[in-house]
Structure formats: C-alpha cells, structure tokens
Design a protein around this nucleic acid. Structure first.
Length: 561
DNA sequence: AGTCCTCACCGG
DNA sequence: AACTCCGGTGAGGACT
C-alpha cells in the first residue's frame, strides 16, 4: 500500500526504478522502463517516490495526467541537511552530495534559471544529465543517517517530508494557475490610469498628475525621479531625505497630494499594468512559478510575475470560473500563535488557545484593553523593534509573558554572537555574510575582527552589524517556524482535497486560495480549518494553541475582505 | 550593450 | 509612532 520506490530518470524519456525496504535500502531488482510516465502510471500502489528533483520530474507526470501521493526530494533534503549541519553554501546537487561521499571533486551547482514571462513551466527546459540510480541510492542512505544525527531527528524527517510535499503542491499550482480575467484587469487599469497613449508612454491619469506636480513646483519635475523631487522640494525651502510616501505625508505643500497619487498609480502601471498582463496571463490563468523554501526562513518565493505582491485593487481580476468559487482562507495571527507554541509560554499559550482575535485577548490580559498597543508590542518583540511605542510596551510584555520574550531574546543573542538558530522543525539560519569562506571577505564583519575601534568590546553592547544580525535571527525563529507550520498545513490540505475537483491555486505565507465547484466550497472550507489544526498537532504535539482561519467563499478575490 | 546599484512600491 | 523582519519587481542611472 504505502510502498516506497526510488526513481531515476534515464536517457531519453526512460526511467530506472527500484523498490525500497523499510530501511530505505533496495528491496528488489532494478527495473528499467522506456517511459517515465508509464513507469509511474503502472505502479499506483507506490506511496512515496524517492527522486532527485521534483521540479525535474513532477511537471512531466502532471502533464501526463498523473498525480503522486508523496515524494522525497533528494536535492531539497540535501539543502536542508547542509543547512542544519552549518554547511549552507556547499553545492546541494545530488552529484555534489555523491562526490562528497567519495571524496571526489565536488561540482558546483548549475546557475539558477531566470524567470521568463510566458514560458510554459520547466517542461521544455533542457534536462540535466541523468544521475545514476545507484548514486541516488547512496546519497539517500547517507541522508537518512544524517537525519538521525540532527538535533531533533523526528522533526528533521518531518521537515524534509513537508517540504517535499510543498514541492508537489507548488508543481500542481504552477500547472493550475490562478484564474484571471484579463478583461476585468483591463477595466480596472482604465478606471485607475485612464487611456493609454500610442507609443507606450504614460497613460492619461499619470500624465495629468505629473503636470499637477510640475505646476505646484512652478517648474518641470519628473515625479518618477526621486533626486529630481528632492531637489524641487529643496528649492521650495523644504528639506526631505527621501521621497518615501510616509515622509512626504508630513509635508505641507501643494505638490504632495498629486505626487503621492502619482507614485501609487505609477507602481500599478509599471508592475501590474498592460505589459504585465501581456507577459503573465494566458488562457484565463496567471501562472507564476512558485519556489518552496525560496527564502532562508522557509517562506516561499515566486519567480516572475510578482505573485506574492498582487496589489489589493488588482485582485478584482481574480474571478472563479462559471459555477465555481474561490475559498480564500487567511490564518489568523499566525506568527504570534506560533511563538506561543514554540516558546510554550503559559500566558501566551492561554491567549492563543482560543479562536478569537489574539490581540484583543492579549490586550485584555496585559494592556488594559488597548488592542493597538498590545499588537505593536508583540510584533515589536518578534521583529526586534529598536524604537517607538513597541519598545515602551515591551517591558509589560516581558513581565507577563517571560518565556515568549526570552525565546526571541535568546535567538537574538545567538545571532549577535555569530551562532546559528533553527526553526521548530530544524531549518537553520545561514551564517552571517563574511564569516564563512564565501567571497564577501572584503566587507568588515563582526566582533572577531578589528577589536581596536568603537564599541565592539564594550560588554553588553554589540556593533550595529551584530544587532542587525540579532534582529534577523530573532525574527527567523518565528517567521521560519510559522513557515514550517504553513508547509504542514498545505500538505494536509492537499491530502484532504485529493478526491475532490477542488484545486489549490494560490499560497502566500499565511493565506491559501482553493478554486472549486460551488457545491464543494463548504467542504473545502472545513478541510482548510482541519488542515490548520492538524498541522499544529503534527508540528508542536500537544499544545493548547489553536490555529484558526478567516475563510471567505467568494467569486472574486477582491471580495474576500 | 550589458551589469550593477539605488530607490520606492507591493505583499506577508 | 516609526519604518523594525522577510521578500519581488521595475525604472533610471552609473558604470564597464
């Protein structure tokens, strides 16, 4: 039933396969198949495929109408294991892993491919030179040993399994695409920006706003050139350090209004305008390329199209097919809940042990009902805020939730001292730039060098570089553990919807969108809630912390909240 | 002509 | 109140 097989691609479309025993070692003869897809199709009882690279193999299977239950991605696991061992930066290809086992010269990883608008997935990319099945099996066996050597072997196994599941989800989402109504998008653009002029210049509204800015300054000013704007303000007797919106908003000058309007619309025009539509939307779907584990903290990134930065106004164009719905689900206050679970702070677990608004519960308990203060203080603790109101309220937080605050404080101290930190499942922070053998050696780094100057050796006072490093590691343990949870949630949701027509079409840190027939929507919403709770139990074991979602069943993404 | 950097916005 | 954490993207301009 839950058989485990190893699979290696061979010359042409072929494959070599072998069944694995409970110990992960071959439990039968190697079988050769002329067709990869037929090899998989004819073995429906395989519960987990062990293979080199999901992005290499799974799109081909999906294109043939196949779906697999689970997989184990050797090169993804290699990256996670190297990280855990403090060896991030060493090549993660299976060829490199094999070479390390045999003390052979280690080949560098192939360069990352750049995003290409409209390119149809990795289907038509040149395939890499096949790695022999025997080599894959050796690397796999070694990786199993390395899991056992991890700080928490069980969690490490969970991490590599979860990210492999994430790679399956990503490949399926890449294929499905996000339903996108180009006509609605064009309507929104026209409404916001006005007519386009021939020649590709600014649309009408932008040209008008630029004229207003110039009129307000009494001379020609290009609002899209920050230095130009700063100079214009200086001539008007106003000193500004930058032209960021929050800084301009403080200024009393007639140019400010149209300038801010211009910047907002300029962004829409350049990043999500007509040319974006042309590049990224085909056949009613927006197809970004999701990259699970694309950031060091384990959050996903996308390659091309800016799928994780779709402006709110543009979401009007995300519309379900006729008779279908979008189930839009947002995990409520995910990071504070994760902090409660990983720190096991009794007070914060209590606050996070209910489905209601966490910040309200927090403020009732410790901030005399001031929700905003409670929220700013907690986020400040997670982000390592250095100034402002959050800092004032941090003292209160520390008194009432000592374990939670000391958990992130300890992570910050580790970072300042150049130590590594890990997420709950064991994803590990990279070393500070320059402290390893990488090529950044010219940049002055942390305390180990140049003890003579400034404050480096004052006890309890780290350099600003070290403090920045501390903020990074402080945030890493929370953001990364939240990404751990989200990955398990996605995997559970994928399993729960396997028998349905529903398709996962979007994932963004703490938010998922499932596209499904209207009569499946209620069931999908339930599956999402259950996946969240299941992920909490699997990741954190017995914990009172709840992981609720705000869920909306809509025809249009913009109506979700 | 191509590469790298800065700026500023978008999202979480 | 201030701009702290993680990213992607495009434009312009300085540079090779």
């Amino acid at each position: 039933m839950s058989e485990r097989w190893a699979l290696a691609t061979a010359e042409g479309d072929g494959a070599l396969l072998v069944p694995l025993g409970p110990d992960g070692l071959p439990a039968g003869p190697v079988q050769e198949e002329p067709e990869l897809t037929e090899a998989v199709r004819s073995r429906p009882d395989v519960g987990r495929w062990v293979w080199r690279s999901t992005p290499e193999i799974y799109p081909r299977l999906l294109a043939a109408g196949l779906r697999v239950e689970r997989c184990y991605d050797i090169e993804d696991a290699e990256l996670l294991l190297l990280g855990h061992e403090g060896r991030l930066g060493e090549p993660r290809s299976s060829a490199a892993a094999w070479a390390r086992l045999h003390n052979a010269p280690v080949p560098p990883d192939p360069p990352q491919r750049a995003a290409e608008p409209g390119s149809q997935s990795s289907l038509f990319e040149p395939q890499p030179v096949p790695v022999p099945l025997e080599a894959l099996l050796e690397v796999y066996a070694d990786q199993q040993r390395r899991h056992e050597a991890a700080e928490h072997p069980g969690r490490m196994r969970l991490l590599t399994a979860a990210e492999s599941a994430g790679l399956l989800v990503a490949a399926e989402m890449n294929r499905a695409g996000l339903p996108w109504r180009a006509d609605v998008h064009r309507d929104v653009l026209h409404e916001l920006l006005g007519e386009r002029y021939a020649g590709g210049g600014e649309p009408r509204r932008l040209a008008e706003l630029a004229d207003k800015v110039s009129a307000a300054f009494g001379r020609r000013v290009r609002p899209d050139l920050p230095t130009d704007v700063v100079k214009a303000f200086a001539q008007a007797g106003i000193k500004v350090k930058s032209t960021r919106r929050w800084e301009l908003e403080e200024i009393d000058h007639p140019a400010v209004g149209p300038l801010i309007q211009y910047k907002k619309l300029y962004r829409i025009w350049t990043a999500h305008g007509w040319s974006w539509l042309q590049d990224w939307v085909r056949d009613g779907r927006f197809r970004p390329e999701y990259l699970p584990g694309g950031t060091v903290s384990g959050r996903w990134t996308t390659n091309g199209g800016g799928a994780l930065q779709i402006p709110k106004v543009i979401r009007r164009a995300v519309v379900a097919d006729e008779g279908w719905r979008l189930v839009v689900a947002d995990a409520d206050q995910m990071e504070p809940r994760v902090l409660a679970a990983i720190s096991r702070d009794p007070g914060l677990m209590d606050v996070a042990g209910h489905d209601g608004d966490l910040y309200s519960a927090l403020s009732d308990r410790a901030f005399s009902g001031d929700r905003d203060h409670a929220k700013v203080a907690l986020l400040g603790a997670i982000y390592g805020q250095t100034s402002g109101d959050g800092l004032k309220n941090l003292a209160m937080l520390r008194r009432r939730f000592p374990l939670a605050v000391s958990y992130v404080d300890e992570a910050a101290r580790a970072g300042e001292e150049g130590r590594l930190v890990r997420t709950w499942l064991g994803r590990t922070s990279p070393r500070a730039a320059g402290s390893g053998d990488d090529d950044e050696a010219g940049i002055p780094q942390e305390s180990e060098e140049l003890p003579s100057t400034d404050t480096e050796f004052t006890p309890g006072y780290a350099s600003s570089n070290a403090r920045a490093r501390g903020r990074f590691t402080r945030n890493f343990v929370v953001q990364g553990s939240a990404a751990d949870w989200a990955l398990l949630m996605l995997a559970a949701l994928r399993q729960a919807t396997a028998g349905m027509r529903a398709e996962l079409v979007f994932f963004q840190h703490d938010e998922v969108i499932v596209h499904c027939p209207a009569d499946e929507a209620a069931e999908v919403a339930k599956a999402i809630r259950e996946a969240g709770e299941l992920a909490g139990r699997i990741a954190f074991g017995l914990t009172p912390v709840r992981f609720p979602f705000t869920t909306a069943v809509v025809e249009c993404y913009a109506d979700a909240k």
